[in-house]
Nucleic acid binder design. Sequence first.
DNA 1: TGAGCAAGTTAGTCACACCTAATTCAAATG
DNA 2: CATTTGAATTAGGTGTGACTAACTTGCTCA
Lengths: 240, 240
Amino acid sequence: MAEKRASAPRQSETPVRETAVDLTGPVEDYLKAIYDIERDQQAAATNEIAQRLQIAPASVSGMVRRLAEQGLLEYERYKGVKLTAAGRRAALRTIRRHRVIEAYLVQALGYSWDVVHEEAERLEHAASDDLIDRMATAIGEPSTDPHGAPIPTRDGRVDERRHRRLSELRPGQRALVTRVGDEDPELLRYLASLGLLPNATVTLDERAPFEGPLTIRVEQARYQVGTALAERVLVELLPD
Amino acid sequence: MAEKRASAPRQSETPVRETAVDLTGPVEDYLKAIYDIERDQQAAATNEIAQRLQIAPASVSGMVRRLAEQGLLEYERYKGVKLTAAGRRAALRTIRRHRVIEAYLVQALGYSWDVVHEEAERLEHAASDDLIDRMATAIGEPSTDPHGAPIPTRDGRVDERRHRRLSELRPGQRALVTRVGDEDPELLRYLASLGLLPNATVTLDERAPFEGPLTIRVEQARYQVGTALAERVLVELLPD
DNA sequence: TGAGCAAGTTAGTCACACCTAATTCAAATG
DNA sequence: CATTTGAATTAGGTGTGACTAACTTGCTCA
Ligand SMILES: [Mn+2]
Ligand SMILES: [Mn+2]
Ligand SMILES: [Mn+2]
Ligand SMILES: [Mn+2]
């Protein structure tokens, strides 16, 4: 027993500005969510954070104020939040953990890709940096997780290329699947059944009007898929 | 994101007696500690629980009352606590997790035995049953952890044989090391340097009077060790 | 320009898990 | 059998992270 708890009492009299140590699980999840939202929009809105974390917007207001006081966020009331450098560093550390864990579970323990997200969502807060590094080494330092998301390096660098969505292709265009949404096990199982995995080649044949279904080809096979699915598949355009 | 939190709000109006679901990390540690103490004494004293968990006795009083209300403990004020059947089940589940994790870290990831306890102390609360089973399978379903402690089975059975301490041997007796204390990394490193690992054969040569140092032999080599060390090494007597 | 409304914040509450200080209890001792 | 004492409990308090209900704010559109 005798483990350090995150909720230990403040006993330091000197309020020294600490270098982002020992964040709680919930805080790590906030930072991840904000990092994610910020990649699309320029600032993360309260409601969007709340939706991703499945909590009430009022709860987000409170937390966000505290994180700003700790120097992890820039926050102006009614204006949304942005990560500070410290906040971004912490977010990337957690994201690295999450993705290394997912990759390890699949490659070393035979997990299927549709269930690893949930497990990683908990383990990311409990694993030490050392464990994460050992896992990464054991599976050959992969550069992406099982869903194609890039794994940040130990020192917080990450491939930030923004890919286009399968739904944005023009008929006739061929592309490489680079990354798919990782949160919905059902979606992942369905994608697998279509062969729509990272590194697969996909061609958009037709698009029905008014956000209608797309006709795609994946390695010879033809499928019709909805836009909700096509929006969650990121691709890289292939030259003709 | 979107993970289930242990600190979710109570929204059920019906106070149904639930079947021990979803315990928090601290609660799991309490149950483990109480299980451990109960193996030696007949009931776990408040102060002893507090000491093991490194928290104030007052905190234990409060927690113990809540756990009793949840049906995990039998508790009578000023009389100490005992695990109920449900409490014991939960304790053994956590202990299984802890020990499987320790074994996996050593056997699959090359950890050294002196550091795995701390890592397991956190991971035991985050890993799913499925992950634990996969880990166990991956390393061949070991029956003990790296320190010789028996791993409970999936269905909560465990080898409860009580071993004697090295300090209790009589001069001339030969014994097999079965298990050593797992919490102190320094002790573990020292034991390793003496070769005093599970499955080693040890002979007690002499014992100095008044709790004095013991002279032991481990595979030909002769050492003098203190009683504090010898109390933390469990052995099984070998016939002459 | 000023309603109306959605987004966001504040106010007040709760459970959890810890703390210190003060008090109570039980068991041993003279 | 009263006193002492150490173990245990109670009282009161804190920080975290959630909630609902009530409010403010800022933006859009008539
Ligand atoms: Mn994921
Ligand atoms: Mn998480
Ligand atoms: Mn251990
Ligand atoms: Mn623990």
